[in-house]
Computed example of a mutant assay.
Amino acid sequence: MDLTRRPRRLRRDGVRGLVSETDVSANDLIAPVFVDATTDERVEIDSMPGHERVPVEQAVERVEEVLETGVEAVMLFGIPESKDERGARAWAEDGVVQRATRAVTAETDAYVVTDVCLCEYTEHGHCGVVEHDAEEDPELTVKNDETLDLLARTAVSHAEAGADMVAPSAMTDGQVGAIREALDAAGYENLPIMAYAAKFESAFYGPFRDAADGAPTFGDRRHYQMDPANRREAMREVELDVEEGADVLMVKPALPYLDVVSDVRENFDHPVAAYNVSGEYAMLHAAAEKGWLDLEEVAFESLLSIKRAGADLILTYFAEDVAEKL
């Protein structure tokens, strides 16, 4: 037996950190923040322990709490005061995200990313204009091209409010190109787009839909979000977003799709983001509450695995807790 090669030599304290191949820092993390126009006090999100919806008036205070941990970037999600069929509050000048963005960018040094989608703003909870007659057509039809204009209007309204980056998440064909064209026409040619380039129709989104009040009232999203079985298709989706002008490429969810994160890293030279989604967060909390896992350790290991797979940025509900430990 040849024992001249002993990898354990480099696993001892002192040298272990010197040869570590991957690390996670607070600068890698983006913290989601939920701003709620329907409340005047913080509301706990039961399925996401440690997270709350905050009123618009407390958005700055909430972001300052994030900044104190060392995390420098936030993504704002909004719960509007009213909804309609087309989601008009998504692009309203006095909309919840627009108001929060103006306040946060004026009063903090946070880098503000805004979610560009319609599901929180539509009565039906889908990510676009819906054409649906349950009696004549049992399958849901989201009108792709009509939705593009609404997403573009929403992105421009966020830019006007002071957003540093916009992140379209509707998985509408052509959304990056439509938003890029609209931003450029409005004078925001330097505003970057983080595209949810490979967003899968996942069972891991449940707690988020509670948090953002964005669950569909009928049907599901399998006709516009990606099939979890498809890996090659993800590369086609990402390539289209690159061609349309995406600056950062997002894979969502993260942990069940680390192969896709790795593929994106290997095939494209853009910054790669991964969304460590609400279900991934909630299941670790649930196991920790049972005493089955050490929450701090599994949270960090999860984020480390996402970085190791190739992500440059991680959007995660663990951002503050992990950053404080770092």
Rank of each mutant, 00 (worst) to 15 (best):
W292T: 07
Y224R: 10
G206W: 11
V248W: 02
A103F: 08
L249Y: 06
N144W: 08
T22H: 13
H132C: 02
T217V: 11
E181P: 05
L67I: 06
D227G: 08
L118D: 01
D36L: 08
D312W: 12
V74D: 06
S20Q: 05
E131A: 14
E320C: 00
E289W: 01
T39C: 15
S262P: 05
V238C: 10
V298I: 14
A178T: 13
K143R: 14
E72H: 10
D213L: 11
M283V: 15
D28M: 04
L303W: 01
E139Q: 15
A288D: 06
I193K: 01
E21V: 11
P207A: 14
E68V: 10
E289D: 13
H223K: 14
D259I: 08
G219C: 06
G310H: 10
P253F: 09
A309M: 12
V60E: 14
M226P: 03
M226E: 03
R209N: 04
R12A: 10
V35P: 09
V272I: 04
P32F: 11
E68A: 15
G245C: 06
P32A: 05
A286H: 04
L148W: 09
Y188S: 02
P32K: 05
V43K: 07
E181A: 15
M194I: 03
S169K: 08
D149W: 08
E123L: 06
R16K: 12
V238S: 03
V156N: 03
D115G: 02
A287Y: 09
Y205L: 12
V43H: 07
A31Y: 02
A37D: 15
